[in-house]
Design a protein around this nucleic acid. Structure first.
Lengths: 186, 186
DNA sequence: ATAAGTATACCGACTGGTCGGTTTGTTTGT
DNA sequence: ACAAACAAACCGACCAGTCGGTATACTTAT
């Protein structure tokens, strides 16, 4: 490699920031390049098309989810059947700037070409399978999991009516429900 | 009135169909006009801007939700504290072509201008308030409600991994949980 | 009754601008 | 020297919105 470069990550960050600022349907390559402090040519060198850029955004989103989930699993010293579910929920309740920006990748990709979300479907499918394989009962486990997703989606569209306190209460109740599921299993 | 015309509804239907076919980020006025069997000028006459069109799509989506919910409330002859919640869930599990197309309005509006979703936020806030005012406990009621939303959103992005059988099981369990909530309240 | 005037509903060519992608040229590390 | 990494001007397609015009119905004055 001629010159060590982290341009790809810088550009991906810039892309998320642009989506945040101008909306998912107005993420143009020129804006992303400017935001990243790179020329159009530099962007095209790293990502040969807009689709390639969006694909990379989705890939990074998925990888980040697995990293966050893994971190949460390690935090839970007790590793019962609900570990994957709990970790997924804790991860999705984490919402620093980085996470909320990354969610916007979903909207950007969906606006340009819904097919780009296919890897996300695969990942979600795998996550669901892991949750269920650990021995939880399908329906109640899915309801808790879907509830976390629902909240995440409302926030993704910036439509959530819940304040921090309410969010926290909901999270607590979710974790309590999972504990209950684990007890019933024994 | 010079001549009765239902062009507006025809155009709104066409807009939804176009979003369905080409994706939320590629809904152009020309395509909508062509789909509706109307000229560009005819479209602009009925909706003076793209924003106006998208706003009307969101408005119709909200109104349709209330209509569907009302219908479900009437179907439930027993009207316990969980009536609004149950009706909302039953309505969101209904997914004929019309409903799933209308959901796409959210993506189209969000892609063009996220601010267009403000009325949706108001409506959702009101729906949540109505559910809670009827006397249900906040956390568990919200979890069931959010789970239905979560499933709806996954389907909106066409990422749901659940088949009809699993969907039905989840719905049944949701209704059971609400019954349980009503019993505990007495 | 009817011609003139007016409002509604719609048409389609055109314009200014945006955006994805290309091409060509330049710098920089090894 | 040479390839990787970028810069910058440019191209063509697309697209939102404009505008002058048309057609049909409704209203009014005679």
């Amino acid at each position: 490699m001629a010159r060590k470069s982290n341009s790809k990550q810088v550009i991906l960050d810039a892309a998320e920031a642009v989506v945040m600022e101008v909306g998912a349907g107005h993420m143009s390559l020129d804006l992303v390049a400017k935001k990243a402090g790179v020329s159009k040519g530099g962007l095209m060198y790293n990502f040969p098309s807009k689709e390639a850029l969006l694909k990379a955004m989705i890939t990074r989103l998925i990888e980040q989810f697995y990293v966050d989930r893994e971190k949460k699993i390690k935090d839970l010293k007790k590793s019962g059947p609900g570990a994957f579910l709990k970790a997924g929920i804790l991860a999705s309740f984490e919402h620093d700037d980085k996470r909320s920006r990354m969610g916007l990748s979903i909207l950007a990709a969906s606006a340009h070409n819904p097919g780009l979300l296919e890897p996300l479907k695969q990942a979600y499918q795998a996550h669901v399978k892991e949750m269920l394989d650990s021995g939880l009962k399908f329906e109640p486990a899915e309801i808790v999991s879907l509830a976390a997703d629902g909240l995440m989606f409302w926030e993704l569209f910036r439509l959530s009516p819940f304040n921090e306190n309410q969010r926290e209460k909901i999270k607590k109740e979710m974790l309590r429900m999972i504990d209950q599921l684990e007890v019933e299993k024994e």
